[in-house]
Nucleic acid binder design. Structure first.
Lengths: 341, 341
DNA sequence: CTGAAAGCGCTTACAG
DNA sequence: CTGAAAGCGCTTACAG
């Protein structure tokens, strides 16, 4: 046995070397041909690709990551998976990145900047190809980790004009304003805002609600019901009951999320409170089931799949080393006026 | 410049070498100490761990994967993300694996064995540490890829006694049987089965339904309404309307999934059909919102979070090279009898 | 446009 | 219990 034989650890895998040998070129040329680098003669590219196909060659991501100092992983950090909103975003991201050879990793932050910082620390050690983050609410340490890493990053859901920050979303404030305005236009005067979780985007919707009502001289702080508890249908029902008890004069409710609003609607049904005659109800996000409620739920349709896809596209551009046409991409929103208002 | 200097590509990263130097041991010893291999003197382990902490060392997953021929990635293949069931499973898996240093990758098969085979092919190239698959319905090629890869694998949702197959789930047949039996016990005689998607597990529930009704001499094939369309609340409403039109004698419906059942309930509300007096309704899975419906939905609570956690634990054992106490883990189910039946 | 050499940061296999 | 050498499969940096 030769010494070189003695230490073999070959996995039986088809390697770039095998492809190169079959195509009768050097491994570097094979590597370049397969990655689509332009500086390779068309004929050689052809030969290499044919050989790779015939051998069933699949590049080793670990070797590639080690040599290039960059993996094909793209962590997506979202607050929760229990909100269908983020699942939709995640799905769209995943579907967009996969055909380009990138893996989507899940990161769940539970709306905790400290948790996000931890996750970021560990994901950055994996040399991710790119990063998708929800919103702008993070620790200073996280911000520095990001900046220092040089990893391309796109922010989801919210917008900013801050220089060097890439983002895809819509104006939460305007959306909150728009649906409140709708209730005002319907003749409502005692419009409550009912919210849970109280994350930054929820509070932006609250801001839109306030601005709208102040413009109409209708703002009343006592009609805001803010609960830090996690959002759920059940909580929506409970909050509506609270509200009707403590503020019986209320004639409309804007729930910050559709799960709360759906719960509110079902609660009204149970209590035989007529919607929208006695009280109008509006939600936010147009989640699954909102169009099936009795009455159907007025809400704001948010472009979450489009956000997932567009942010992934923007990231793809950045990972390619190019500059996207715009830093901030506003995908808008659409009020869905239905039976509950 | 020396030749060795000329080619430096060092990333500025803290490496195992840095740790070894600081701890005054060889890199191999440092590697072993950090991975908790037993054959290292306690004192050295201490020194290495301290050095690693002080330097803020984070192992490079790519290098580790390349050298060991095994990554820390665990792809989880589920049919859909639009069914909250699988999101719950995924979340539990993710939460269980993360503290052990494993990354959860999403794979969406859309209930298509061919898609699953494709995904498997690409994921296996990444040398995953382990694999989590939904059910047993796959192509022969996929089966062979799996067997040939030697990658530890646990199957979710269904059970089998097949040798060498690890699985965590519950009996879909028994669960379908149990909820049907409940309807019979409530005095129902014309019990319909309404299903969508028609995936293997749905059809197992159908089998449970059939067996139960045959035992009671109540089976009537005309009361089965099977739609290959994707499951949704809206479809549930439509199917219920169909059923009431074509089979007005029906006095109970077992929907194969809660989204259909919720849609059915809301449809009944709209049509002013009294539930449960005129018709009893039961669903499956106990998804979010089922306990909020009017009336509340009778259903079968399935242990999806427990399945996610237990399957991840089983996989952890397998990845450690140990043998789990059992091949097949039955986590059961729980009929939730509520207002709709 | 093409290639020989070295290196990415770890672990395996062997030896002692 | 510890270590020197080699190797995992790719890409970078340099040269021509």
């Amino acid at each position: 046995m030769e010494p070189t034989e003695r230490k073999r650890r070959h996995s039986g895998r088809i390697t770039l070397n095998d492809v190169a040998r079959a195509a009768e070129v050097s491994p570097i040329t094979a590597s370049r041909a397969l990655r689509g680098e332009r500086s390779v003669a068309a004929e050689l590219v052809e030969r290499v690709k044919t050989a790779a196909d015939q051998l069933g060659y699949v590049p080793d991501p670990a070797a590639r990551a080690l040599a290039s100092q960059r993996s094909t992983q793209v962590p997506v950090l979202v607050p929760l998976l229990s909100n269908a909103l983020f699942v939709d975003v995640l799905e769209a991201v995943h579907r967009t990145l996969l055909p380009h050879g990138y893996q989507t990793l899940i990161g769940v932050t539970h709306y905790e900047p400290r948790e996000e910082e931890q996750l970021l620390r560990s994901y950055l050690a994996h040399r991710p190809a790119g990063l998708l983050l929800t919103g702008f609410d993070r620790t200073e340490a996280a911000r520095q980790l990001l900046a220092g890493s040089g990893v391309p990053c796109v922010h989801l859901m919210e917008l900013t004009q801050a220089p060097g920050v890439y983002c895809v979303g819509f104006s939460q404030i305007e959306a909150g304003h728009a649906i409140t305005e709708h209730l005002v236009q319907r003749g409502r005067r005692r419009i409550a805002f009912v919210a849970a979780q109280l994350d930054p985007r929820t509070m932006q919707r609250a801001e839109g609600y306030r601005r709208c009502l102040r413009q109409h001289g209708l703002y009343d702080a006592k009609l805001e019901l803010l609960s830090p508890q996690p959002s759920s249908m059940q909580l929506g029902g409970e909050l509506l009951e609270d509200l009707l008890r403590t503020r019986p004069e209320v004639d409309a409710v804007f729930f910050c999320n559709d799960d709360l609003a759906q719960g509110g609607l079902l609660c009204a049904l149970r209590l035989k409170i007529d919607v929208p005659t006695r009280i109008a109800v509006a939600g936010f996000n147009d989640l699954s089931g909102s169009d099936q409620m009795v009455p159907t739920l007025t809400t704001v349709r948010t472009p979450r799949r489009a956000i997932g896809e567009a942010s992934a596209q923007m990231l793809l551009t950045l990972m390619r080393g190019s500059v996207p046409p715009q830093h901030s991409m506003d995908l808008g929103f659409e009020p869905m006026i239905r039976g509950s208002s």
